[in-house]
Amino acid sequence: MKTVTIDMPKFGQVVLKNYTHLSHEALLAVLKMRNHPDVRKKMFDHDPITESEHFHFINRLSKRTDTEHFLVLYQDKILGAINVTDADEQAQSAYVGMFSNLESTHPMAAFILENALIYYGFDQRQFTALIAEVLEENKNVIALHQRFGFRPAPTDTNGVVRLVLSNVIEKNKGSHG
């Protein structure tokens, strides 16, 4: 999907723009966000991303049907990005991730990004489970996911915490949206 508009009960409209349909300038803004040192250190690969690697990555995304990355806008401001990767249509589950635009001065950015991720996964894509894998030293990110109902699940990968959220959208619509 090119652009998805989500209507959140507590925040109103949030716009998700697929990376594969962004302008060159917008993609450079995405690269800048991806390369922020505080974003990189939370990723599995800490190395800065070159412009060439970034555009190859975008190019590869356009050929995949199981993976989507979105820029998240609220009131025309970029709050960050969310992604749904390795979607398993049979298992109705997908891996999810997010990062903030660290130049954003919006106090609700993390609230809105996490809600956008959950609503897109459950409401739009109808997954029954969302899986987040986070480096174990990223205690705040783990705690953030847990505040929204993600629960730890077993994993064989050392240094990684796996968290799973089952579809609770109807039950929690009033509390998190």
Binding site: M108, F111, A143
Partner: peptide, 16 residues
């Protein structure tokens, strides 16, 4: 609070 001692993730913790 926000902008000095808490980022937007900290606001989630504080609010919840």
């Amino acid at each position: 609070l926000f902008g000095r001692n808490l980022d937007s993730m900290g606001i989630v913790f504080l609010v919840t």
